[in-house]
Design a protein around this nucleic acid. Structure first.
Lengths: 337, 337
DNA sequence: CTGAAAGCGCTTACAG
DNA sequence: CTGAAAGCGCTTACAG
């Protein structure tokens, strides 16, 4: 592959001059400029970014680590990051950790070793200590995270409490009193917040909190379906509504309800969280709490980019975005009983 | 960040020695080995891959360009690539082109400039000429592609003709004679092959080919739904079965059929292609032609890796994988008419 | 077994 | 306006 030396030779100038024209330094004699450009063209020369980065200490690339590429939530977020990165002319390296701490840490280190300028981690599973080691090598922005991480890192997030509260309010307004919560693993602050809101809105309405109606699942469709089955087949009264921590699980819950011979929403209502594309396409279309996934991606990229170029300095910053309830077909009036 | 020089100083040896122990050269005095390792530990030193790569001319990274991260087909393929890459200790950079030639070319160049050792491109949109320029900088493996690309590049693919033929056979065996084809844009060889098979199986069964029952869509759910609406609302007899080029569109077709007041599969049957996870979760569960997506990813990565390390030499190689019809709930007997 | 030195392909002061 | 030279952090023959 052609190197700068080849170009210099072809153009009959020094490699310093070639570097000059390629980096847009003003002071180049027009004649030399042309010669260099011609040589570049002729040799199809592209600068070796490795060498450039080694010298300048900036690579113009950032990493994004997501926990689950299979959940449509993350690809949408990724597109936000990607679009901002593109606009800034930096390339994005996308890594999928499968919710596995070791993979996540492995990717984080690989990225750091490749000298990316910064890393966005969605729902970090690695420890605070690891995060801090990482921070010494490049900028970090978190999307979601545990309570202890919140205090120390730049982060963009959604207002989970108010999002969940709106969902519960909606269910209450349709006359539901027996509302179950199917959550993801309660390790991230956001899931905790949704649970807290669920509980406090219920209690504020004079409805006692029933721990047996709170299920901790693993974010998968199957775990959602299993939770619904379990709750609906238990002896005693069953919930007439489910508030579910993400849409994938909510879709599983809907199926579980059907599999029990009950109808959605006539017999049981379901409200999800996220508003992935599938929510709209499903039948019945899923009522849910929309997260501005794309926006979250944009904002986190922007924040990271600002840190990298030094526009954003000093204290940690948290950007909190709003959610919105999306009314579709899976929530209706509580059945008379 | 600590450099090799720092480690050498800390350990009281030369940087050549540090490099030696880090790269596992046998001939290191145990005492120095320990000293170096201790220094590495103490400084949390990680080699700068930029520098290493610049010197060795191999980066231990590969790229994967997919056309649509939003179609679950590709994330699954990506996981296959990823897992093989991990096993080989190479890191994968995933890029999403949005079916946009310019983005695709941009990513390809960015990747090449980062000196990745190779690139896998799924459904390339860039020209043969661009592909050839790229090839001068790194190894290329294609997944799917146009007819002209097939002749010149390593490629892994599925046997689309036999896959599509099985689908049509299935539909015929259920008594269908009026079968529509809803395809993606007929630019890739695979879509062309599916269409060819559709046509030839039909004709072999004495059923005339009706071009007005072939729709060219853009791979999206909405385009599938629109095609169904159009076909079902046209004057004259309508198809009793749809063979659809991918599952996302097939799900759209199912919705379109419902929206016309018809039932699936009682009134109209639908068979998709791909077998994405959603196909199983949808209601009614989608009958489709399974592609071994994960396997395709694995195979393409393996081929690329073999090229890179020189195990695979010489002529272009094509690996063709098999499909399988997955019977679920959207295909049934053709209605009496 | 180890160290000094050259070189990977760039950028960047610094003379001229 | 341009060229020669140093240096980014590594690896790799090559002396010793």
């Amino acid at each position: 592959m052609a190197s700068m030396k080849d170009v210099a030779q072809e153009a009959g100038v020094s490699i310093g001059t070639v570097s000059g024209v390629l980096n847009g330094k003003k002071t180049i004699k027009p004649q030399n400029y042309r010669r260099v450009m011609d040589a570049v063209q002729k040799l199809d020369y592209r600068p070796n970014m490795l060498a450039r980065s080694l010298r300048t200490n900036i690579t113009g690339s950032i990493g994004l680590i997501i926990p689950d590429i299979t959940n449509p939530y993350y690809p949408e977020l990724a597109r936000g990051v990607e679009d901002m990165a593109r606009k800034a002319g930096v390339t994005l390296f996308l890594c999928n950790s499968d919710r596995d701490v070791d993979k996540e840490w492995g990717y984080a280190q690989a990225l750091a070793q490749k000298q990316v300028d910064g890393i966005i981690i969605a729902k970090p599973h690695i420890s605070l200590e690891q995060l801090n080691m990482l921070r010494r090598k490049c900028r970090i922005v978190l999307v979601d995270g545990t309570a202890e991480q919140l205090g120390e890192f730049d982060l963009v997030n959604v207002d989970n409490r108010s999002g969940a509260a709106s969902a519960i309010d909606l269910l209450l307004s349709y006359g539901h009193r027996k509302i179950a919560f199917v959550g993801g693993i309660i390790e991230s602050q956001s899931m905790q917040d949704r649970l807290d809101a669920y509980r406090s809105v219920l209690e504020k309405s004079g409805i006692p909190y029933r721990p047996e109606w709170v299920k901790e699942c693993n974010y998968s469709w199957h775990s959602g379906r299993a939770a619904a089955l379990e709750l609906l087949k238990a002896p005693g009264p069953h919930p007439t509504a489910f508030f579910v921590g993400n849409d994938i699980m909510a879709l599983g819950v809907v199926r579980g309800i059907h599999d029990c011979g009950l109808r959605v929403p006539e017999d049981v209502s379901v409200c999800g969280f996220d508003d992935i594309a599938m929510a709209e396409l499903a039948f019945p279309a899923l009522t849910t709490v929309r997260q501005p996934k794309y926006e979250i991606g944009c904002q986190s990229a922007q924040l990271l980019l600002e840190r990298i170029c030094g526009v954003q300095q000093g204290d940690i910053v948290h950007r909190v975005l709003e959610t919105a309830v999306v009314l579709r077909k899976t929530v209706s009036w509580a059945p008379q009983s």
